[in-house]
Amino acid sequence: MTAGSVRIGGGSRFFNGAVLRFVARRLLQALIVMLMVMTANFVLIKLAPGDIVDVLTGSSDMTAEQIASLRQEYGLDQPVIVQFVKYFARLAQFDLGYSNQFHDTVLNIILGRLPTTLLLVAFSVILSIVIGTVMGVAAARSAGKLVDSAISALVLLFYATPVFIVAIVMILCFSVWLGWLPTSGLYSVGAGHTGFAYIKDVAAHLVMPVVALCTFYTAIYSRLARATMLETMHLDFVRTARAKGLSERRVIYGHALRNALLPIVTMAGLQVSSLIGGAVLIETVFGLPGMGRTAFDAIFTRDTNLLLGVMFIASLAVVVVSLVVDFLYALLDPRVELK
């Protein structure tokens, strides 16, 4: 493998002024998107019953004076545009308000729930890309044969099954009938596991959520990988690789797949947003203490503030991930000039 020389070649592209300009430009775009999201938040607050202070304080046990001073602070007597600017200023400092249900700031609550969601989403992204690509490559290599048809049928089924239905069917099979896996929570409460036993416990709790969340996205990547592999395998440089006397493995994985991965990376960046949305459902079904579950709880306690906080942080996460994916793509594809 000649990864070393690739890295040298790649490296020289990445330590120059172009990088700064690239990052600056993408950050500006991200900022604009976040401003839009903040606007959406504000509009939703205005749509919610009650005014902004009702929302911010929840069904509060604050004193009347405290509420009055908050009203003043938010300038509810002032024009909408002033309220808008003040709200922005607070959000920009990550002041997402206070939740009376949890007796904590919204930011703290979300930060406490973030790791679970990240764990779930990260495992699902990786697993769906890996399995999807493997399935897609296998289908492409046996295009038109039985393996291809079998994979295509499976993909069709995965593609049509909402993640929460997969989750429920899995609970039915693996918990209700077989009794293999726990149905809810992130770890066994009261078991007091430590060290390796704790990791094993968490893993057992995460298997079904991750697999359930994966299925739909596995189908997407599998379809994409099959199509791009079929396309790539007919390209001239793959023929060149064969003409060089490389092994079939090397031709498929070193040359064809390496190029076919590029659209998969792009797709992964586009799907992260949707995947985080799916995590809301999965966390709710499996009772995982993550952001999605928090949003769900917030609806039923009418904690609009917490709800919007989750939306804000989730959107921020998507923005950050797409920045990372753009950069990763530029690393993988030398033709992308960072400009």
């Binding site: 000649t2 020389s5 490389l246 040359h255």
Partner: peptide, 20 residues
């Protein structure tokens, strides 16, 4: 089109040597 766009030319030449 007959060269792999995501590999350096050095890597593509070395590959032949390493294969044989």
């Amino acid at each position: 089109t007959s060269l792999n766009p995501v590999m350096t030319i050095g890597a593509q030449i070395m590959e032949v040597l390493e294969a044989h």
